[in-house]
Design a protein around this nucleic acid. Structure first.
Length: 156
DNA sequence: GCCAACGTTGGC
DNA sequence: GCCAACGTTGGC
């Protein structure tokens, strides 16, 4: 982490059918590719710093919720899957000379013994301002305040 | 599988 | 630049 820079906190979603925290635990480190949303991209490209911590959230599954922690371990760089016609996340409009999509590499930190379920998070007034809990929110990458981070850690 | 909410696309 | 149509997300 850069000297004088406060560590930041994030939450990132993944469908466990596609990529789960078990997959990350096995691989140790992985490019967080396939994000195709400008707001999410901007946060990865412009704001994330090496050493930031991220809640790993399982979406679109039986018990959606936070399942563990990972860490940002690279600066942002162009998402190579956008240039690969054989990749499911291929985007012909992303020019290698002017890439549209960016990502960071993340590393596995830990898995919680129990999922902190979305249902649990929703019941906490301390978290009512989290974008995650706002109606209709679909952002797959979002900031978490230090207070929210600490509070969620206390739910374990 | 349903469907509400939201982002993106493209015609005008 | 508006906005209708369409596609996707993601909880339920």
């Amino acid at each position: 982490m850069q000297a004088g820079t406060q560590r930041q906190y994030w939450l990132m979603k993944s469908e466990p059918n596609e990529f789960s925290i078990l997959d990350l635990a096995r691989k140790k480190r992985e490019p967080w590719d396939g994000v195709r949303n400008y707001q999410a991209r901007n946060m990865m490209r412009d704001q994330m710093r090496i050493g930031d911590l991220i809640f790993f959230y399982h979406s679109n599954c039986k018990v959606p919720g936070i399942v563990g922690v990972m860490e940002v371990v690279s600066e942002s760089y162009p998402d190579p899957t956008a240039f690969d016609p054989n990749d499911g996340h291929y985007d012909p409009k992303s020019d290698p000379d002017k890439p549209r999509w960016y990502l960071v590499d993340v590393a596995y930190v830990e898995t919680f013994t129990e999922t902190i379920a979305l249902q649990t998070l929703k019941a906490c007034p301390e978290l009512e301002n989290m974008p995650l809990l706002r109606r209709g929110n679909r952002l797959s990458v979002m900031p978490v305040s230090e207070q929210e981070w600490q509070f969620i850690q206390s739910l374990r």
